[in-house]
């Protein structure tokens, strides 16, 4: 594979974490405009862990993931009972609060004669673990893809057990779900924690690829894109959000056939798809059909 293909594939994989994160909450019936906050939190936490505290890479990624999950659950605890739109705006407010706070957040230490660590709006330089370990882009793509596969496997496992069904019924009809003996709030908080962890892991991996991160990268635009990917790709399966990312980044941006007119084509395409399939391309009905066809 040439360098361009590798970088496109890595991008797709990294964005997929964010898209899956937003998708998990969509399944639980909540719209979040703010999953980029957990991506940012994961990126900063993992970067601080490996660059400032000199932790090993795996521990750094785990720290970023765990931190994202913990903050996700913590933020959901007071907000999850808000009605739909209020929750959505609360996620937006929280994400912008995180971004604005990172703009003034400085935490630097002297590592080998260089001041290392986040420096407010100037960003966070030299997250060099991967670079120093001599990991090639191709090898890093394998690591990112492996982590993504683990996330997909986890969701698939949840779909096999009852976890995913719980999320779905809570999302579809909370009152009827409560009548089945589910604690709606607890289920949604668990979903928010999971979503925060997935985004955090993506952020942690992103920080080590980019080596430089800054608050402006984690804007509302990023989060709204992540949300749209799931809605376009479909709500029926975890592959839906990935399909959304593939269409946008993979097809339109990378093939460059629509050079310059990407968003104009993409926007119109999405609007048309949604008129025909309001729950995305891979919606429940299509997933059902495809799985029935595969079983044959």
């Amino acid at each position: 594979m040439d360098g361009f293909t590798i970088s496109v594939l890595t991008n797709i994989a990294l964005f997929s974490f964010l898209a899956i994160s937003a998708w998990i909450l969509l399944i639980a019936g909540e719209i979040s405009f703010g999953q980029q906050a957990y991506f940012a939190i994961g990126a900063y936490a993992a970067g601080i862990a490996t660059a400032v505290w000199q932790w090993p890479f795996v521990a750094g990624i785990a720290f970023g993931t765990g931190f994202g999950a913990a903050v996700g659950a913590l933020v959901a605890w007071p907000t999850i009972r808000l009605s739909g739109l209020h929750f959505a705006i609360a996620t937006l407010a929280f994400a912008e609060l995180v971004r604005a706070s990172l703009n003034v957040f400085s935490y630097q230490r002297d590592i080998d004669g260089y001041a290392t660590g986040p420096d407010g709006a100037n960003g966070f330089r030299d997250i060099r673990w991967v670079y120093e370990a001599g990991i090639e882009p191709g090898a890093y793509l394998v690591i990112v893809a492996g982590c993504l596969a683990a996330v997909i496997a986890l969701v698939a496992l949840m779909a096999r057990g009852r976890g995913m069904a719980r999320l779905r019924i809570v999302g579809e009809d909370p009152i009827l779900a409560a009548m089945q003996g589910l604690s709606v709030a607890r289920t949604k908080i668990a979903a928010a924690g999971l979503a925060g962890g997935v985004a955090g892991m993506g952020g942690a991996l992103y920080a080590h690829l980019a080596t430089y991160i800054e608050p402006a990268q984690f804007s509302v635009m990023t989060g709204v894109h992540a949300l749209a990917y799931g809605l376009i790709g479909g709500l029926g399966t975890v592959l839906g959000p990935i399909l959304g990312v593939l269409i946008d980044i993979g097809l339109l941006e990378s093939l460059r056939v629509f050079s310059g007119y990407r968003m104009i084509v993409f926007g119109g395409l999405v609007a048309l798809v949604l008129i025909l399939r309001p729950r995305g391309l891979l919606d429940e009905r299509n997933v059902h059909r495809i799985s029935a066809w595969l079983r044959r």
Binding site: A165, R168, I169, E172, D173, I175, L176, R285, H288
Partner: peptide, 8 residues
Amino acid sequence: RLVFPEMT
């Protein structure tokens, strides 16, 4: 609200 319509 009798059933979860999207589920089998």
